[in-house]
Design a protein around this nucleic acid. Structure first.
Lengths: 183, 183
DNA sequence: CCCACATGAGACACTCGTGTCTCATGTCAG
DNA sequence: CTGACATGAGACACGAGTGTCTCATGTGGG
C-alpha cells in the first residue's frame, strides 16, 4: 500500500521539532517506514525540509484564513490566530530555527506572504487605535514567531502546560501591543 | 605568541550566531588561526561549544549583577537587565537553539541558576503588584529568552535597528507583564 | 646567539550521514 | 493464480567534517 505522505510529514515534523538534527534513518523509523522508502518519496533531506516548509506555510495560511484577521477588533483576531496556529507551533519552531541556517539562500517567498498578512493585522490594530504605535508591525510579527517558538519548546519540555499555551502567548503579546488605557 | 583564548571565543560566538553549523575550519579562520591551533586550545567542537556556553553563562551572570535586580521597581530592573544583556544576545540566541539539540542530555546547571535569578525578579514584581500574576515567572523567563533570540536575529538580518533592540524587547515584555492600570 | 615553544600547513585515517542500488518479500488487482 | 507494484532490509560508495599527527617556520627569552 502506498505510504501516507501526509503521515510521514507529520511524524517527521514531530520528531524534528524535538531534535532538529535527527537523521533520515530516525525520521524513517519515526514514520514507521524504511529509509529506502523515505528516499523514494523525498529525494533527500533537503527535499524533506522543503516539503515540511511547504506544509508549515500551508498550515499558517490555513490558520490565517480561519482566524478571519480582518473581522472584529484586532486583539480578538490575534487571539484567534494564535489559537488556530497552536497545533502547528512545533513545526513552526523547527522551521524558524532552520531558516536561520539558510543564511542568504533563497528564502521561500511563502513566508513573505505570511509575514505580510500578520504585519497587516498589527498595522490594522495600530490604525484603529487598539495597538501602540511605537512597536513596529515588523517587530511584532517577529516577536510573535519568537513567542510561538518559545512556547512550543516550553510545552514540549513540560515547563508550560499545553492548555496554557494560547493564553500565555496572547496575554503577553497583546499586553504589550495594547494601549495601556484599554480594558 | 600564545593565542588569545578570549578573542577566539568571541569570534567563534560571532560566527556561530550567524551560522550555527559553521565548521571548525571556518571558526578557526574567523579567529585568524589555523585549525590545528584551534584544536590545541579546544579539544573538539563539543569542547568549544561548552566553552561558549560557559562564556554565555558568565556574561549573563555579569549582566544580572550589573542590573541590580533587587533594587527599585521590578520593571526598571527588567529594563536594566535587557540593556546589560544586549551585547551577549547573539551568543545567547545561538546557545538557546543549541540547547534544543541536547534533548535530555545534561543541561548545564549554570542555566538553572540564571533561570532562578530571572524568575525571582519576575516573582518580586508580582509580589509588589507591578506585574500580573496570571503569567507564571517560568513563562516570563522563557518568553524573555525567546524575545532576546528573536531580537538578536531580527537585528542581525536588518529587520530591526540595533539601537531599538532594548526598547522593542522591554516595551513588549513589560507591556505584557505590567498591570494594565500602571503608568 | 641559541634554544624552547607556539604556530601554520598539510597529510591521514576515521566516523557519520547520505544517496543509490539490488534483491527478497508482501500485497492487491485482474 | 499471477503479475505489477510498493516496501523492507541491507550493501555500497561517496563526501563532509573531525581528530590526530608530523614537520617546517618563526618568534621571543635567556
Amino acid at each position: 500500500m502506498a505510504v501516507d505522505r501526509d503521515h510521514v510529514l507529520r511524524s517527521a515534523a514531530a520528531l524534528l521539532t524535538r531534535r532538529a538534527t535527527a537523521t533520515m534513518d530516525e525520521v524513517a523509523k519515526a514514520a514507521g517506514i524504511s529509509r529506502a522508502t523515505l528516499h523514494r518519496h523525498f529525494a533527500g533531506r533537503d527535499a524533506l525540509v522543503r516539503a515540511l516548509e511547504a506544509l508549515g506555510i500551508a498550515e499558517c495560511e490555513g490558520a490565517l484564513d480561519a482566524a478571519r484577521l480582518d473581522e472584529g477588533p484586532a486583539r480578538d483576531a490575534v487571539r484567534r490566530l494564535v489559537e488556530e496556529i497552536e497545533p502547528a507551533a512545533g513545526l513552526l519552531a523547527f522551521l524558524y530555527t532552520e531558516n536561520q541556517l539558510f543564511e542568504g539562500e533563497a528564502q521561500n517567498e511563502g513566508w513573505a506572504h505570511i509575514d505580510d498578512r500578520i504585519a497587516t493585522l498589527f498595522r490594522r490594530g495600530q490604525s484603529s487605535g487598539e495597538f501602540r504605535i511605537d512597536l513596529t508591525p515588523a517587530w511584532l510579527t517577529e516577536a510573535l514567531y519568537g513567542l510561538l517558538a518559545s512556547g512550543a519548546w516550553a510545552v514540549s519540555e513540560g515547563r508550560v502546560a499545553r492548555k496554557d499555551f494560547t493564553h500565555m502567548i496572547v496575554e503577553l503579546l497583546l499586553g504589550g501591543a495594547l494601549r495601556r488605557e484599554e480594558s
